[in-house]
Design a protein around this nucleic acid. Structure first.
Lengths: 114, 114
DNA sequence: CTCAAGTGATACCATTTGGTATCTCAATGC
DNA sequence: GCATTGAGATACCAAATGGTATCACTTGAG
């Protein structure tokens, strides 16, 4: 498994970018709107948005002369799954529980997709 | 919510360090043993270990003149919980526990893993 | 004590990173 | 058409980062 998750972890490595993600979780914003929440220039925020976009964590859609940035939380999944490997070191009972639930989901015919 | 998770995310931001974590997940190792798995000097590996230790992701215990580095996966929890906030954007009906299972259940052809 | 092995610490280097300042381009509004 | 506003591109800078090389310290063995 190569580092397709590197752009994601790299994007998450900066507190400003993590903050931007939470911010965009509330509602999509233009660059100026995002920048209005931080004590830095729009150019700096733009750079962060590029990094976030590079990691697939946000989507950018043009709206007139503006660019609307919206959260794409799905891109967090690979990173979360990578971290999930370490679950085995936290609590082995959790692993057993997951196994039990997995069996339950195969038995349940009604709620597997979204 | 200050950035007590910054050291953790910072540590995870480097592929070598993520690799070291997986490595130490198998067994504790001295610096030399860890360095033996990478194409870089012990000093460079040591730096990575310092960053990992700074994030609390590894524990270091002296054993004679050696230093044994062991995984402390529990330190991943804050980061994982932070990411868990975004679960609401994936599928509000299910919580984080389902995430680890999902990769197994995405196969809807009628049979699951083996 | 003396020598070897493992680690820690420092100095140093090239690159990346986070940030600003500035300029140009595109779309909006009068 | 022309000024205004939002965004992109570039140049530039200071600091952090990843890495090497080197030296000092500590432990273990004769």
């Amino acid at each position: 498994m190569p580092d397709h998750l590197q752009p994601v972890f790299r994007a998450l490595g900066d507190p400003t970018r993590r903050d931007i993600l939470r911010l965009l979780g509330r509602e999509p914003m233009t660059i100026a709107e995002v920048a209005d929440n931080f004590a830095m220039t729009r150019a700096a925020v733009k750079k962060h948005l590029v990094v976030l976009s590079d990691g697939g964590l946000i989507k950018v859609a043009p709206r007139g002369r503006e660019k609307v940035n919206s959260l794409n939380a799905l891109a967090l999944k690979p990173a979360l799954e990578w971290m999930g490997w370490f679950d085995q070191f936290w609590d082995e009972r959790l692993d057993a529980l997951k196994t039990a639930i997995e069996k339950d989901t195969t038995d349940d015919t009604g709620h597997n997709n979204g």
